Amino acid sequence: MSTAILSAPFQAEFDANSQEFAFAGVIRPRSVDEIAHSISALRHAIEQARGVLYINVKRLAQMNNTAFHAFSRVVLDACRTRSDIRFVVVTSSVVGWTERMFRHLGKIEPQITVEVYDSKFYPGQSFVEDTSFIPILRTQTKMTWRHERTILPRHGMRAGIHMADICCGIGDFAVLVRKEFQPARIVALDHSKASLAYARDVAANFGISDIEYTYGDASEMLLEDNQFDLVTCRHSLQIFNQPDLLLKELYRICKPGGRVYITNEKNSHCLGEPRSQSIQWTYNEVAKLFGHFEMDVELGPKSRRYLADAGFNDIRVESFMVTNLDGDPQDFADVITAWENVYAGEMAVKRGDPPEFIERFRQGFRDHIFAALHPKGYAGWPIWAASGRKPL
């Protein structure tokens, strides 16, 4: 059961099942009277709560001092009258001011704590956001674009649409889409400030100034409902430990009748010849390694199920194989070298794998490179592209 109090552009909602009181939007009242209904709702939520009441401010874009002091007073008063209740204020690094604003409440009352939601949400984030990985990401996009440029129109891409590229990374995909398909609007969002800075440079180098690069958490976006004809999210669901939450957000910002397009991998299906057995062993171990860090690089074929469970219909799924024959084989080899450095050189080390395992693990990557560069060799990296339509 949940109750919502709407006063555009601000929302306060209490979910009794999860004992969570959530704020969203802009709360800038001129007087406390303007938010009296929401203050009353918070008091009612506290009366109902047992144990812990979560106060969710992840989507709180703005709050003035009038509102902050009014709501804080309700919480502080409850702390002094009820020793049986604790308050956990859930913030996000995307809206860092909320952490600063609410943090001092915990210094006043030990029953109040503040948690930065996304600091623990992405267990593998430090690996995939390493800036040393940026150049190889451009090579990967160059290799996949040869396939995606023909695939995208089957999944809702066309001129004149409003599009969001979520988890945009270094922004090169958004630039390629802008040049090839001419959407009327592109919002590109990512959780890495370093990647976004690089993305803006990439766009500037191509003379593109109308892509709206935005810092944000893909699982709790400060974007309005139902505003994009096409929402893309490439190679990203597989690196988050709760992909269903991301899909829920992608669904929310997509217009009814619009589509959400995702790409994901199945790393255990990476292949190469010659030396296929060594290559196969290593990529089976890659899947296990990512699983250790709560990521699923086997997600590709599961795309249909995830989209269906999120509520989409007219689901379209296709796969393609990026190979050493897609342009310069050295590009393929460079990608595998980067994988070896991160997967064997960082992730396996952090997991605590012994040297003999890491050496065998590395050998599979080296054999994949050998296959890619061999004059008679073949090396492949499989990707699943899928999209679903948000019902009207």
Rank of each mutant, 00 (worst) to 15 (best):
E47V: 14
D33A: 15
V202D: 12
I46R: 06
Y261V: 12
A379Q: 04
A371V: 13
A12S: 11
K266Q: 12
E34A: 14
F127T: 00
G124C: 12
V90G: 03
A164V: 10
D326H: 05
T98E: 07
D314L: 09
D15R: 04
M163W: 09
R103S: 14
F133W: 13
H368V: 02
I5W: 07
V75I: 15
T66Q: 03
R275L: 06
H155E: 13
Y122I: 00
A197K: 11
S209V: 09
L325W: 01
F68S: 04
L222R: 12
R43K: 14
E249M: 04
S72E: 03
P123L: 05
Y378P: 00
N56R: 02
I39D: 06
N313H: 15
L60W: 00
S7A: 07
A49L: 07
H235D: 12
S2Q: 09
F332R: 00
R82Q: 14
P274K: 08
N313Y: 10
V187M: 10
V74F: 08
P29N: 10
I108T: 12
P329N: 03
A184C: 10
P9M: 05
A199S: 13
P375K: 02
S219K: 04
R234S: 09
R82I: 15
A194I: 09
M101I: 04
R360S: 11
V32F: 01
V128R: 01
L247A: 02
L245Y: 11
G106D: 08
L299D: 06
E285A: 10
R366G: 00
P135F: 13
S92M: 05
Y261W: 10
S219A: 13
G300D: 07
L196Y: 08
A41G: 10
